[in-house]
């Protein structure tokens, strides 16, 4: 790990790293510290300063039924979106990796959802799945009111999940294909010689060797769908947390409580809880990344 030929450490070493440390301190550590401070205090009205309230903010958050419905919505969203995004990408990667003629041109299309902005694709999804126009509207013609995500919470959730899963196909595909391509050809050739067809090789050779990458992506997708930027953008454009809070994900609730409800302490307490969740997920990821199988 360590480099042998290092330069003599002088002030230059500190000077080089200073900009990054300053940025990280001002825009990461200080705000995180402020969140902790706010979570345990309550701002007094009319500028009376902050009063220490211990765990009161947390108990207020945890005793709020709306918070738990938001937790439930977030869990449904995160697991459904992750499952769908990974499943689609996995199937595509497995088949593209067969490297038939023309696979390469398919490949470059599968990558592009990565580059498309989540709010832009949300706008497109809002049109495609609008109840009165677009692609799905015809079902309302032969059964009025069958599809309306602006009233039906379950349908709104489906829509949000579909949008996230679409956006994350690209990212997952890139990683899964890279992992597939690093599987030694000798392995596949040997099993082909033993009479295994392509489907059998997928199930018995490629899938087991993909597990490390797959678990890595599982954690990344879960983290992203719980706290990521895309979840926020998708919800804000598609549903704004509605109808009746059916898609009010945790990351959206922090924003609306903090900036629309101006409840800084409550939002900070929610932030701390989410931070803990992300830490747990990251910890799990490290366990998996450490155990990664190296097949080079």
């Amino acid at each position: 790990m360590e480099k042998r030929a290092v330069f003599r450490a002088g002030s230059l070493a500190y000077l080089l790293i200073l900009p990054q440390l300053l940025l990280v301190f001002v825009f990461f550590y200080w705000p995180t510290g402020a969140a902790l401070y706010w979570a345990f205090t309550l701002e007094m009205p009319w500028g009376g300063g902050n009063q220490w309230v211990g765990l009161e903010n947390f108990s207020a958050v945890l005793n709020d039924a709306k918070y738990w419905s938001s937790v439930a919505a977030s869990c449904v969203f995160a697991f459904a979106a992750t499952a769908l995004a990974l499943a689609q990408a996995l199937v595509l990667a497995l088949f593209v990796d067969r490297q038939l003629r023309g696979s390469k041109s398919f490949r470059s299309f599968y990558v592009w959802p990565y580059a498309v902005a989540a709010p832009a694709v949300s706008l497109a999804f809002r049109f495609i799945f609008a109840p009165e126009t677009g692609l799905v509207a015809f079902v309302n013609q032969w059964w009025p009111g069958l599809w309306n995500p602006s009233i039906n919470g379950a349908q709104a959730m489906t829509l949000v999940v579909l949008c996230f899963a679409w956006k994350w196909i690209g990212y997952n595909f890139i990683f899964l294909l890279a992992a597939l391509q690093s599987i030694p050809r000798a392995l596949t050739e040997a099993s082909a010689m033993d009479g295994a067809g392509p489907l059998r090789r997928m199930l018995d050779i490629q899938l087991p060797l993909l597990t490390p990458t797959f678990f890595f992506l599982l954690v990344i997708n879960l983290t992203e769908s719980f706290v990521g930027a895309d979840s926020f953008g998708i919800v804000d454009i598609l549903t704004e947390g509605g109808p009746a809070n059916a898609t009010n994900l945790l990351v959206y609730k922090i924003y609306s409580d903090g900036f629309k409800g101006l409840d800084y302490s409550g939002a900070a307490a929610q932030s701390i809880i989410l931070m803990l969740l992300v830490m747990v997920l990251t910890f799990i990821q490290f366990r998996w990344v450490e155990r990664r199988v190296h097949y080079k």
Partner: peptide, 21 residues
């Protein structure tokens, strides 16, 4: 490690205090 830890918490989670900063 000081720099590494920042990978863990995305901006969205600490949005309110970052705004204050």
């Amino acid at each position: 490690w000081v720099i590494f830890v920042t990978l863990m918490l995305p901006l969205e989670v600490r949005i309110v205090p970052t705004y204050a900063i």
